[in-house]
Deep mutational scan, measured.
Amino acid sequence: EPEARKIVEKLINNGLSPEDVKRWAEKNNNPEVKKAAEEYQKR
């Protein structure tokens, strides 16, 4: 999901860690963003 990846990169560029992004995604019920954050961590 390229859109989710863009969101993850934007949040990380704004100073969030991938863990923060995953928590944000869970709080906002956004499994695509959570998955993208996990993939981002593996890179």
Rank of each mutant, 00 (worst) to 15 (best):
E1M: 15
P2D: 15
P2V: 15
P2Q: 15
E3D: 14
E3M: 09
A4S: 07
A4E: 03
A4G: 05
R5K: 11
R5Q: 11
K6P: 01
K6V: 11
I7Y: 04
I7F: 08
I7L: 11
V8T: 03
V8S: 01
E9G: 04
E9H: 09
E9I: 13
E9N: 08
E9W: 03
K10T: 12
K10V: 11
L11E: 02
L11A: 05
L11I: 01
L11Q: 03
L11S: 00
I12Q: 01
I12D: 01
N13S: 13
N13I: 09
N14Y: 08
N14L: 15
N14A: 15
N14K: 13
N14G: 12
G15P: 01
G15R: 02
G15A: 03
L16R: 03
L16D: 02
S17V: 01
S17I: 02
P18I: 15
P18H: 06
P18Q: 04
E19H: 05
E19M: 06
E19F: 00
E19L: 05
E19Q: 08
D20G: 06
D20N: 04
D20E: 13
D20T: 03
D20M: 08
D20A: 08
V21C: 06
V21H: 01
V21N: 03
R23Q: 10
R23Y: 08
W24E: 05
A25E: 04
A25H: 00
E26G: 00
K27G: 09
K27D: 14
K27N: 12
N28G: 03
N29I: 04
N29F: 08
N29K: 09
N30R: 15
N30T: 06
N30Y: 15
N30E: 12
P31I: 12
P31E: 11
P31M: 12
P31W: 10
E32A: 15
E32N: 09
E32R: 07
E32Q: 12
E32D: 10
V33Y: 03
V33T: 01
V33S: 01
V33D: 01
V33Q: 01
K34R: 12
K35T: 08
K35W: 06
A36W: 11
A36T: 04
A36P: 00
A36S: 05
A37S: 04
A37F: 06
A37N: 03
A37T: 04
A37C: 07
E38R: 02
E38H: 04
E39N: 05
Y40V: 07
Q41T: 07
K42N: 11
K42W: 06
R43D: 13
R43A: 14
R43P: 08
